[in-house]
Design a protein around this nucleic acid. Structure first.
Length: 473
RNA sequence: GGCGCUAUCGUCUAAGGGUUAGGACGGAGCCCUCUCAAGGCUCAAAUACGGGUUCGAAUCCCGUUAGCGCUACCA
């Protein structure tokens, strides 16, 4: 049974790329029937914020994908330290007493890579211990094998065989001079302790993985599988950042723009992954069914947005597709919420409500369209556009429409066919083209010239309301 | 600078030695039609560059270029 983890660090809102990483983890583990772990990587105490934590949970909850276990790294520091010292005890790490400033000064990129301080590596056990006992601060560094032509290798499920000469890996830190673990140490210790079987994360960690392999080898006989995901980048080629690209990088932007979570998940999955069958519009269930690491690309994907439109056009299209095909019973509550937050009173009759939603949804692209463009379907306070007014000003139209209202009021039958029959009869009687009343009725009932088939509009608006609006002419 | 990864229409991508290089979004046009969408059809649009290997290269190899990542006591 695979165990995977999503490990965000709470230093900002939930990023679109992080959301996708979460989704890929989720897809894999739900398909295989394993365990999804949410681990908050909050070891960088100074940069963590409560707001960020909230934003992560908000985003994840909105996506509607759940996890099974949850941990905070800050509560597991003792474990990380213990594992770091275990590496030290095996002789695979050493204390580096070089002060921070001195280290920085010593590192000149022009003179080649910094690999470590030979003097510190060479320090005897006794000297090292004595200086530590005397209270001299130090960082604990991994003792990367030198001059052995040693290659560190691992197999990535996406990027295939990876290898790097140990002479190109610097002596990275395990514990900081304040005793707290670094990201590499904490992450690997937790992955081991939580028995993570598959590490699925952004490609920005591909190079780091060589270090992680070294840590895993020092601590365990087992090695997790790795799968790195191509990055999401901005149209200018840079990586997505809030400072530079604004709110597009946050998942809340899409939520607030009226996306249904299913569509957003669908969109994110198509960035860097595909089912190899030309299908792009898929339910989460279908994606889960088709998901595999072979379908993941190796090149970065550009999120296509502009200053004028922060939403990727493909995402909009996908949202419209989901909006008109998902079960109405799933959509209706979302529409209800959209109406509520827009201050439009929500009809009490559930059956009528769902019917209305079902009729109008194929013309809408986002949830916000329901209270905006669809206002007249749900409440009596709506404005009539000048174009609609024109349709009603056609000579004879108002009188005929009022008569149609009277006629419809005499019958319980409110089916589309009945309405059509009555409308055509009234039109003929008044010597009007049916089109005049067809367009006219849409105009009275919705205040608009655009919308569903005129007869469907009657049923969408509902009998009482429709008749009242006709009679009020 | 060093190391690693990547490179197909504007964007997301398919094709893993033989295709007129396919699909989708977006764009243009036509059809359908009670309006608007949707839907159907058509068009424009790509293998970064240079060398190899091969009867044959988008595909394999090498080089160049470009982008990205790592190179922190950030994650």
């Amino acid at each position: 049974m695979p165990r995977v983890r999503f490990a965000p660090s709470p230093t900002g809102y939930l990023h679109i790329g992080s959301a996708r990483t979460f989704i890929f983890n989720w897809l894999y583990v739900r398909k295989e029937g394993g365990t999804m772990v949410l681990r908050i990587d909050d070891t960088d105490v100074e940069r963590n914020t409560e707001a960020s934590m909230q934003s992560i949970f908000d985003g994840l909850n909105w996506l509607g994908l759940e996890w099974d276990e949850q941990y905070a790294q800050s509560e597991r520091i003792a474990l990380h330290q213990q594992m770091a010292w275990k590496i030290f005890d095996k002789g695979l790490a050493y204390r580096d007493f070089t002060p921070l400033q001195a280290t920085e000064a010593e590192r000149d990129p022009a003179s080649g890579p910094w690999l470590g301080d030979p003097a510190m590596r060479a320090l005897s056990q006794e000297d090292s211990q004595r200086r530590a006992d005397a209270g001299e601060p130090f960082v604990l560094r991994y003792r990367v094998p030198r001059d052995e032509n040693r290659w560190v290798t691992f197999k990535d499920l996406v990027y295939r065989k990876q290898s790097k000469n140990a002479d190109d890996i610097e002596d990275f830190a395990l514990l900081r001079s304040n005793g707290l673990p670094t990201y590499h140490m904490a992450s690997c210790a937790d992955d081991l302790d939580l028995r993570i079987s598959h590490i699925i994360r952004g490609q920005d960690h591909l190079s780091n993985t060589f270090k992680h392999v070294l840590i895993f080898e020092a601590l365990s006989d087992t090695m997790p599988e790795f799968a790195h995901l191509p990055l999401l980048i901005a149209p200018d080629g840079a990586k997505l950042s809030k400072r530079k690209h604004g709110p597009v990088v946050s998942v809340t932007t899409y939520r607030d723009a009226g996306f249904v979570p299913q569509a957003y998940v669908n969109f994110l999955c198509m960035l860097g992954w595909n089912p190899k069958n030309n299908q792009e519009f898929m339910t989460v269930e279908e994606i889960k069914e088709k998901f595999s690491f072979e379908g993941i690309n190796r090149s970065n994907a550009t999120v296509n947005f502009s200053e004028a439109d922060p939403i990727d056009p493909k995402a909009s299209w996908l949202n419209a597709q989901h909006l008109r095909t998902m079960p109405v019973s799933v959509l209706a509550p979302m529409v209800r919420e959209a109406l509520e937050s827009a201050g439009v009173p929500v009809p009490a009759d559930d059956a009528q409500f769902e019917q209305t939603v079902d009729i109008i949804r194929s013309r809408y692209a986002v949830l916000g369209d329901f209270p905006e463009k669809g206002r007249a379907y749900f409440c009596d306070h709506f404005t009539t556009t000048p174009e609609a007014e024109e349709k009603l000003n056609v000579p004879g139209a108002r009188i005929a429409l009022r008569e149609l209202g009277e006629t419809l009021a005499t019958s319980e039958d409110f089916s589309e066919t009945h309405i059509e029959e009555q409308l055509r009869a009234v039109a003929e009687k008044h010597g009007l083209k049916a089109g005049v009343l067809i367009n006219g009725s849409r105009a009275v009932l919705t205040g608009q010239t655009v919308g569903p088939s005129a007869f469907a509009v009657f049923t969408a608006v509902g009998r009482e309301r429709a008749i009242a609006r006709l009679l009020a002419l």
